[in-house]
Nucleic acid binder design. Structure first.
Length: 274
DNA sequence: CGGCGGTCCTGTCAGC
DNA sequence: TGCTGACAGGACCGCC
């Protein structure tokens, strides 16, 4: 799935085509995602006009003039695609297909169904249980040294898991957690509360550097992820450790180590990352 | 409360 | 070729 750079890329990709468009038809499959898809509510979107598209963590918000917001999370395997041929034929795992008056079609496809589709009044979204507890955005002012140091000193779990904890910081998933720690020269096994001030500084810089580089590259494409136009992101060419088990570290040439932490793959260089 | 393992689901790939 | 098991970008839940 999409981590923050992929979600941001999808958001940008759909915005230019959907802004100002009016929904003419909603086809929603009665399917169980992270929670049941609210089919009856989704159908009420017909006639609504898109006024803005935003992102919070890995959630995309399509905001309408009817004061409603469509909330979409792509989970592990979800994709949000645009189709410009007037007659789109639904494919397997297309759970939501929305037609717009400008003959553009927005398709939500998610084979593993770990994603989420929800509808909420725009001004009530921040109160939703799955959004209320989220930590700061990596590029926001409230994600700073004082905040991060304070959060990390209270936690004893491995720093890699802390990076992926949405209450501490949103947007960093498994791939980028690996890449960020490699760039920062910090071992993923270190407990969060063992980091020194200078390491925390370095971590913040690399969280922002790695994510912004990935956004510029249009995200990373591994298996399922595609950009909204169906083409692929390019950042996977830039991975330094992820998926490189046994290959040479680009810095010191020793072999990249692969381990499992909380059932997620961790890749790191045990020489460069201490 | 914090940490960790199990779980939701389908697709793909390696190995037999 | 076909089966089986491991594994995959996320996040929630429940148990200690």
């Amino acid at each position: 799935m999409p981590e923050l750079p992929e979600v941001e890329t999808v958001k940008i990709g759909i915005t230019e085509h959907l802004l100002g468009s009016i929904i003419s038809e909603v086809r929603a499959e009665r399917v169980m995602l992270r929670k049941p898809m609210p089919v009856e509510n989704l159908i009420t979107l017909v006639g609504s006009k898109v006024i803005s598209i935003s992102r919070r963590a890995k959630y995309i918000f399509i905001n309408f003039d009817s004061s409603l917001s469509l909330i979409i999370h792509l989970g592990m395997s979800g994709a949000l695609l645009l189709d410009k041929s007037a007659t789109y034929l639904p494919k397997k795992h297309d759970h939501l297909v929305i037609n717009f008056d400008n003959s553009i079609c927005l398709i939500y496809n998610d084979p593993r169904r770990f994603g989420l589709v929800d509808l909420c009044k725009t001004d009530e979204c921040s109160g939703l249980s799955y959004l209320a507890a989220l930590g700061p955005e990596p590029f926001a002012k409230n994600f700073n040294f004082a905040y991060f140091q304070d959060m990390l000193k209270k936690r004893s779990l491995p720093i890699k898991l802390a990076l992926m904890d949405n209450k501490i910081l949103v947007g960093v998933g498994n791939i980028y957690a690996n890449e960020i720690l490699y760039e920062a020269g910090i071992s993923p096994l270190r407990s969060a509360n063992s980091l020194k001030a200078e390491e925390i500084e370095k971590l913040i810089l690399n969280i922002q550097a790695v994510l912004s580089k990935a956004i510029k590259a249009g995200g990373s494409t591994l298996k399922d992820y595609k950009k909204a136009d169906g083409t692929f992101g390019g950042f996977q060419e830039g991975f330094h450790v992820y998926g490189r088990k046994g290959l040479s570290c680009f810095r010191c040439s020793s072999q990249v180590t692969h381990i499992s932490q909380s059932r997620r793959s961790t890749y790191f260089c045990s020489t460069c990352q201490t």
